[in-house]
Amino acid sequence: MKPLSISVVLAALSFPALAADKVAVPPAEVEAVVQAMFKSALEDWKPRVGQDETQRVCTDTRNNPPDAEAAKIKARELASIAYPEDGNVMGDWKKGEKIAQTGTGGQFSDEPGTVNGGNCYACHQMAAAEVSFGTLGPSLLGYGKLKNFQAAENKLALAKIFNAQSVVACSNMPRFGYHKFLSMDQIKDVTAYLMSPDSPVNK
C-alpha cells in the first residue's frame, strides 16, 4: 500500500460520519488550514484556535459520541466543576437577569474590559415577559418552580451552567465556568435568576 492510501484510509476511519464517496481529509491537514486562517491572532488569543480533548471528540463525532466516549467526557467535565466555598449557590437574580440578556464579551470587536454576558436568551426562553428568546436550547420558563425550589436542584443548576457537558456530552451549550467565560459570582447570579422563587422566570 502506498503511504497516501494509508493516510486516506486512516482519515476515513476517524470520520465514520462521512459517506464513502467523499474525499476524506486527514485531521492534520484541516488543522493546518485552521492555523493559517488565524495566523495573525494575538498571542493571548492563540489558545482559542486549538481544541481541547472534549472539543476534538465532539467535532470528530459531530456531537454524537459513542457511549464510552460520552461517559469519558462527562466524567472529565464533572471533575472541572468548582462550587462556591461557602456552599451558597444562589446569587442576585436581578444581576442574573442582566447577564442572561447580555450578548457581548469575548469578541474581537469588544472594548478591552467588557464584562462577558451569558446571553441565555439567545437560545432559551426564560421569563414570560421576554418574548425575544431563541429556540436553540429548551425553554426554561418556570424551571425553578418545576424543580420545586429544592436546594439540591439549585446546586445541579449551577453545575450545569458551570459545565453543561458534565450532564450532556457534546451539548451545544458553552462551558461557562470551565472556560472562565463567566465568573463564579456571575454563575451564582444566573443560577438565582433561574431558580429563585422571586425571579420572573418562576412567576
Binding site: V30, R48, V49, P174, H179, F181
Partner: peptide
Amino acid sequence: ALFYRRSSIEDF
C-alpha cells in the same frame, strides 16, 4: 470539516 469544528471559549 471546518463547519463542524468546535473551538474557543464558548465551544461553538
